[in-house]
Amino acid sequence: MELFLQRLADGLSQGSVYALMALGLVIIYRGTGHLNFAQGEMALFCTYVVYQCGEWGIPIGLALPIGMIVGFALGAVTEVALIRPVAKKSPFAVFIVTLGLFQFLNWLDGAIWRDQPLPNSGVGSVQQQFPSLFPSKDTDFITIFGADIKLQSVGVFVLVLALTGVLFLLFNKTKLGLAMNAVASNAESAKLVGIRTNMVLMVSWGIATAIGALGGVVFAGINHNVNLTLMFTVFIYGSAAATLGGFDSPGGAVLGGLIIGVIENMAAGYADEWVGQQLKVGVAFVVIVVVLLVKPSGLFGTAKVERV
């Protein structure tokens, strides 16, 4: 029972990161119908920025907003300068551009911060480990039903729930959210009621990337460092979460992320011999394939999402 609870907690906190990644994917998908393959690397860049802020002595409470603002700008600029011009040509061109951006950002991170995990205490970095948003020492846990749950796990989970709440309000109670929903539903008509669709798309990419940045920082905190391959698997888990929840459903994305985090940890824990740490990523593969084959619109997506 204790083990189960601990695995559940770990699953939920990792699932929270996937949820953030999936949210970013979904927000972009709803607006433009594009799957942003660079989402993970955009988040990674911001995570490095937050690391750098830490090196300069900026506390994480301030560095995180800086990272998210950088993310917003990165996303917005990407949409305006790279995505919008080629989106007119073909969806394939957009796919290639996101892939090129993936490669470019991954290279850029290495070019600026080298290819070793950071912080590398003693070697060129003043931080001991990547700053965590929540208490993360070995002694920072609470005991629930005899299980020691890390405060970090609780914090991350609560953070994601809070963010989901904020996004829910944004989508359902603000003009921006209404405009985003309208563009997602029918971009042509959105123009005809006076919505600046270009602005909405730009802001969507900005918000998506800022959320991704948050996910990257949280994950680097759990992981204690940031490195060039950090977001590969997070991206694929996030994609699996978005597929499971439905690519046009933000709520589905969050739930999908949590479910996948839990499945992944349970599978790795209980089927140790077969799945273990190595094959955890197989969970994402299986989920993606099965969902796309059985129910392409996901658990909460609308059937409008055409996958065949």
Binding site: A179, A182, L192, K304
Partner: peptide, 24 residues
Amino acid sequence: AQVPQGRGTFPELSVEDNLRAGAI
């Protein structure tokens, strides 16, 4: 304001949200 031929409503949005979008 334009009422396009073939209506062009927002199918996924509620009736009320459609109207609110009109007032955006």
